[in-house]
Computed example of a mutant assay.
Amino acid sequence: MSTRIEVVAGRRRWTVEQKLAILRDAFGPEGSVGDACKRHAIGSGSIYTWRRQAMSGELGGARPAPLPSFAEVELSAPVPGLPTAGSHIEIELPSGVKLTVDSGVDADALARVVAVLTR
Results as ranks from 00 to 15, higher is better:
residue 22 I to M: 09
residue 17 E to C: 09
residue 54 A to F: 05
residue 108 D to P: 04
residue 115 A to W: 05
residue 45 G to K: 14
residue 38 K to G: 09
residue 38 K to C: 02
residue 47 I to S: 01
residue 57 G to A: 10
residue 19 K to I: 03
residue 70 F to N: 04
residue 22 I to Y: 14
residue 11 R to N: 13
residue 2 S to E: 00
residue 76 S to A: 13
residue 83 P to F: 00
residue 116 V to I: 04
residue 113 V to T: 07
residue 78 P to G: 04
residue 109 A to H: 12
residue 10 G to F: 08
residue 80 P to V: 02
residue 54 A to H: 14
residue 31 G to T: 02
residue 89 I to V: 13
residue 111 A to Y: 00
residue 71 A to H: 12
residue 36 A to Y: 14
residue 43 G to I: 07
residue 32 S to W: 06
residue 20 L to F: 13
residue 63 R to E: 03
residue 90 E to Q: 11
residue 40 H to E: 04
residue 52 R to F: 06
residue 3 T to C: 09
residue 91 I to C: 04
residue 70 F to G: 06
residue 76 S to E: 13
residue 102 D to A: 11
residue 83 P to C: 02
residue 101 V to A: 04
residue 59 L to G: 07
residue 118 T to F: 01
residue 10 G to H: 08
residue 72 E to I: 03
residue 99 L to A: 06
residue 50 W to R: 01
residue 107 A to P: 09
residue 25 D to K: 14
residue 79 V to R: 04
residue 43 G to A: 08
residue 68 P to T: 03
residue 26 A to I: 15
residue 59 L to V: 09
residue 38 K to L: 13
residue 13 R to F: 06
residue 100 T to E: 11
residue 12 R to K: 15
residue 94 P to D: 08
residue 21 A to G: 08
residue 69 S to F: 12
residue 84 T to F: 06
residue 39 R to W: 04
residue 89 I to D: 02
residue 76 S to H: 07
residue 6 E to S: 12
residue 49 T to H: 02
residue 5 I to W: 12
residue 85 A to L: 14
residue 27 F to P: 01
residue 95 S to P: 06
residue 109 A to K: 11
residue 84 T to R: 14
residue 5 I to G: 05
residue 94 P to Q: 07
residue 52 R to K: 10
residue 21 A to F: 09
residue 6 E to Y: 12
residue 93 L to T: 06
residue 96 G to A: 15
residue 29 P to V: 09
residue 65 A to I: 03
residue 31 G to M: 05
residue 111 A to P: 03
residue 23 L to D: 00
residue 63 R to P: 00
residue 17 E to F: 08
residue 74 E to F: 13
residue 42 I to R: 11
residue 23 L to G: 07
residue 12 R to P: 10
residue 26 A to W: 09
residue 66 P to V: 13
residue 94 P to M: 09
residue 26 A to L: 09
residue 108 D to G: 01
residue 9 A to R: 15
residue 106 D to P: 00
residue 25 D to L: 13
residue 82 L to K: 01
residue 22 I to H: 10
residue 62 A to H: 15
residue 118 T to Q: 10
residue 20 L to E: 08
residue 96 G to E: 05
residue 57 G to Q: 03
residue 38 K to P: 02
residue 49 T to E: 05
residue 76 S to D: 09
residue 24 R to F: 06
residue 35 D to S: 13
